[in-house]
Amino acid sequence: MKRLETRVLTVAAIVVAVLSISGMAEAGLRDSLFAVGRLKPIDSQLKVAVGETAPDFSLTSVEGKDVTLRKYRRKKTVVLSFVPAAWTPVCSDQWPGYDLAEGVFKENDAVLLGITVDNVPTLNAWVKAMRGLWFPVLSDFWPHGQVASSYGVLRSDGVTERALIVVDKKGVIRYIDVHDINERPDLGVLVKELEKLK
């Protein structure tokens, strides 16, 4: 009986190991995501409007660089993409999707800045799990959500809205989409807005 138990336990351990390894091969990011459920679509009050000068900011990127909004003036249109949180399902789709659109942003002389209130180590791990992104990912962690708050897209639970804000080369806000946090914005709508600024 003892020998049989030992054999079964050994086989079981091997089965568990094989299943785990084969699962990890593709699981990666998607199995690490935190399901947030259905949230209140919008939970903040905008503090900016189209036609106003975009509040300036300087944030640290995942690469450890300081990225300052005003440095893009007269050079590039800037798309600010606020997403609520790392390691959540919709956010983890939205940004990899923008990888496909890198050429579209460049054709429209635009840069994309991704912003969340997560800290840099968290963002670093998340971006790596997404196999990297072509645009800077910025941490608005401390003072917590200060930039998001200055735009009025910081929710009451401390994460940001899912918001897209287009800032033209004069530093003026030309488009705002504070989107239902549960849904992904249609890329086509954003591209149309960028094309208006060409």
Binding site: G103, D186, G188, V191
Partner: peptide, 14 residues
């Protein structure tokens, strides 16, 4: 699933 016509066209082109 969950993609718009524009997004599909972009994917196909890419």
């Amino acid at each position: 699933l969950g993609n718009s016509d524009y997004e599909v066209a972009l994917f196909k082109s890419k």
